Simulated scan of single mutants.
Amino acid sequence: MLYLDNAATTPVRREVLEAMTPYLTRAFGNPSSHHTVGEASAEALADARARTARVLGVRTHEVVFTSGGTEADNLAVKGIAIAAALARGARHIVTLSIEHEAILASVAYLQRVHGFEATLVPVDGYGRADPDAVAAAIRDDTALVAVGYANNEVGTVQDVASLAEACRARGVPLHLDAVQAAGWLPLAGTGASAIAVAGHKVGAPKGTGALAVAGRVPVEPLLHGGGQERGRRSGTQDVAGATGLAVALELAEREREEDAAAVAPLRDAFIAQVLTRVPNARLTGDPVHRLPATASFTFAGTSGEAVLLELERRGVVSSSGSACAAGADEPSHVLLAMGIDRESAQTSVRFTFPHGLRHSLDPVADAVVASVAAVGR
Rank of each mutant, 00 (worst) to 15 (best):
residue 100 H to G: 12
residue 154 V to Y: 07
residue 109 Y to H: 11
residue 153 E to F: 10
residue 77 V to W: 01
residue 118 A to I: 00
residue 161 A to N: 05
residue 77 V to C: 08
residue 167 C to S: 08
residue 89 G to N: 04
residue 141 D to C: 00
residue 149 Y to G: 00
residue 124 D to M: 05
residue 139 R to G: 05
residue 164 A to T: 01
residue 79 G to Y: 02
residue 62 E to H: 10
residue 52 T to E: 09
residue 66 T to N: 11
residue 130 D to S: 01
residue 59 R to D: 14
residue 130 D to K: 00
residue 92 H to A: 07
residue 107 V to R: 02
residue 90 A to E: 08
residue 133 A to T: 00
residue 54 R to L: 10
residue 99 E to R: 11
residue 107 V to T: 08
residue 119 T to A: 15
residue 136 A to G: 06
residue 151 N to Y: 05
residue 127 G to V: 01
residue 152 N to P: 09
residue 165 E to W: 11
residue 104 L to D: 10
residue 100 H to I: 14
residue 144 L to D: 05
residue 157 V to I: 15
residue 162 S to E: 07
residue 83 A to C: 06
residue 85 A to F: 07
residue 69 G to Y: 11
residue 143 A to M: 04
residue 55 V to I: 10
residue 84 A to L: 02
residue 154 V to S: 05
residue 93 I to W: 07
residue 71 E to Q: 15
residue 95 T to L: 08
residue 85 A to Y: 08
residue 97 S to W: 07
residue 138 I to W: 06
residue 143 A to D: 03
residue 167 C to R: 07
residue 72 A to T: 10
residue 97 S to C: 10
residue 143 A to S: 12
residue 168 R to Q: 13
residue 132 D to L: 07
residue 123 V to G: 02
residue 75 L to S: 06
residue 136 A to N: 03
residue 133 A to E: 09
residue 64 V to D: 12
residue 82 I to F: 09
residue 55 V to A: 06
residue 57 G to Y: 10
residue 62 E to S: 11
residue 123 V to N: 03
residue 113 V to Q: 12
residue 101 E to D: 12
residue 73 D to C: 13
residue 97 S to L: 10
residue 67 S to W: 15
residue 112 R to M: 12
residue 54 R to W: 03
residue 105 A to Q: 12
residue 125 G to R: 08
residue 63 V to R: 05
residue 74 N to F: 11
residue 53 A to S: 10
residue 164 A to N: 03
residue 160 V to Y: 01
residue 91 R to T: 15
residue 82 I to L: 15
residue 105 A to R: 14
residue 90 A to K: 09
residue 138 I to K: 06
residue 75 L to Y: 06
residue 67 S to C: 13
residue 156 T to I: 02
residue 165 E to K: 14
residue 68 G to R: 15
residue 118 A to R: 04
residue 122 P to Y: 02
residue 51 R to P: 04
residue 102 A to R: 13
residue 133 A to V: 00
residue 92 H to D: 14
residue 135 A to V: 01
residue 65 F to V: 11
residue 111 Q to N: 13
residue 123 V to T: 04
residue 135 A to N: 02
residue 85 A to E: 14
residue 73 D to N: 15
residue 103 I to Q: 09
residue 100 H to C: 12
residue 126 Y to H: 14
residue 70 T to M: 10
residue 100 H to D: 14
residue 52 T to H: 08
residue 142 T to K: 01
residue 99 E to W: 04
residue 74 N to L: 14
